[in-house]
């Protein structure tokens, strides 16, 4: 097993946290993991992204020219990373903030309204959980229980926030599963 994903968005959208939770979940399930952030001025409001690699073997490169999956939370991230997805790979687009889509026919494109899902449960701030859920739901790289345990660790002190994140994660998970199934039909 080897999964590589890039989470990208603007600073403050929580893409770093989404990646960290994924990496932790991979570690908790006994895999090798790497989480690699962009850093520096990019972190102060510009485009931020992180790479997460989960594997059964020691991980070589933490960077890749063509990731198997990319999750984009805003338009500049789509422009920067959309073209890099490996053929046959997965592109998850936060359709709440991105009207455009990818015209690539060699990858699976899944549009998930991350902000709207989170807003529906109380706050758009949890949009990153919808995105994380969508990626995990589509790829099943880790189990929902592992992710939930980490979400609890992160937000456990605030029951309301925890509930918002749980529900957003679950709805995102479902959207990812269904979206990938639909995208696969389209490619066939």
């Amino acid at each position: 097993m080897l999964s590589e994903v890039t989470f990208a968005g603007f600073g403050g959208q929580g893409v770093m946290l989404a990646g960290k939770i994924l990496a932790h979940a991979g570690l908790d399930e006994g895999h090798e993991v790497v989480w690699l952030p962009s850093y520096g001025p990019e972190m102060r409001g510009g485009t931020a992204y992180c790479n997460v690699v989960i594997s059964d073997k020691p991980i070589g490169s933490p960077i890749f020219a063509a990731p198997a999956a990319v999750v984009v939370m805003n338009r500049p991230s789509l422009d920067k990373f959309g073209s890099r997805v490996k053929p046959g790979g997965l592109l998850i687009i936060n359709s709440s903030l991105i009207d455009a889509t990818s015209d690539r026919t060699d990858i699976h494109v899944v549009r998930v309204p991350c902000n709207e899902i989170a807003q529906g449960f109380g706050s758009a701030k949890a949009a990153n959980m919808a995105a994380l859920g969508a990626y995990c739901g589509a790829t099943k790289v880790v189990t929902v229980d592992s992710v939930k345990a980490l979400v609890k660790e992160t937000f456990g002190a605030k029951p309301k926030v925890l509930d918002l994140n749980y529900k957003t994660l679950e709805r995102g998970w479902q959207a990812g599963e269904e979206g990938l199934a639909a995208a696969k039909k389209k490619i066939k």
Binding site: K20, A23, L27, E32, V33, V34, W35, L36, P37, Y39, I59, P62, I63
Partner: peptide, 10 residues
């Protein structure tokens, strides 16, 4: 290098 400093691994 910056990668070693910034990346997270077990």
């Amino acid at each position: 290098d910056g990668l070693i400093g910034q990346m997270m691994e077990p």
